[in-house]
Simulated assay, not measured.
Amino acid sequence: MAFDYSKLWKLLEEKKMYKEDLRIDTGMSSATLAKLGKNEIVSMDVLGRICESLKCDVGDIVSYLVEEKLEQSDEY
């Protein structure tokens, strides 16, 4: 699974908010903010609090990226 939070950072920029402002407003830990920065998985609770804070929908802050898996065949 791969997630991309670049929409979140763009939205924060549009709202002239800093990441630290969002962290404080949502009550998330600095470790969770770091996970978002690394496009790692965070809980739906955190995403919900971000949406509430920014008055947006979850699709406005995160994208799911489809990872193509290479299938290996036993045939040569």
Rank of each mutant, 00 (worst) to 15 (best):
V66H: 15
Y5T: 08
K19H: 05
C51M: 13
S29Y: 04
S30R: 15
W9M: 03
I50R: 02
L70F: 13
Y5S: 07
S6K: 11
K16A: 12
L8A: 01
K16Q: 14
T32A: 07
K10V: 09
K16P: 05
S43Q: 10
Y64P: 02
I24F: 06
K35G: 01
E40G: 04
L11H: 11
L11W: 04
E71W: 09
E52N: 10
K38N: 14
G37H: 02
D4I: 10
D45M: 08
N39W: 01
G48D: 13
I24A: 05
G59R: 12
C56L: 01
R49Q: 14
K35N: 12
R49A: 09
V58C: 11
I50W: 00
I41C: 03
G48K: 12
V42R: 04
W9R: 03
K15A: 14
E14M: 07
G27T: 09
L8W: 07
C51Q: 08
L8F: 10
S73L: 14
S63G: 02
A2G: 06
S30T: 13
E13Y: 06
R49S: 13
D25G: 04
I61V: 13
V46R: 06
K35W: 00
S6L: 00
D4C: 15
I24L: 12
L8G: 01
W9L: 06
C56P: 00
E75Y: 08
S30Y: 10
E14W: 01
M1Q: 03
S6R: 08
E20H: 12
L70K: 15
T32N: 02
M44P: 04
D25R: 07
E13P: 00
T26Y: 03
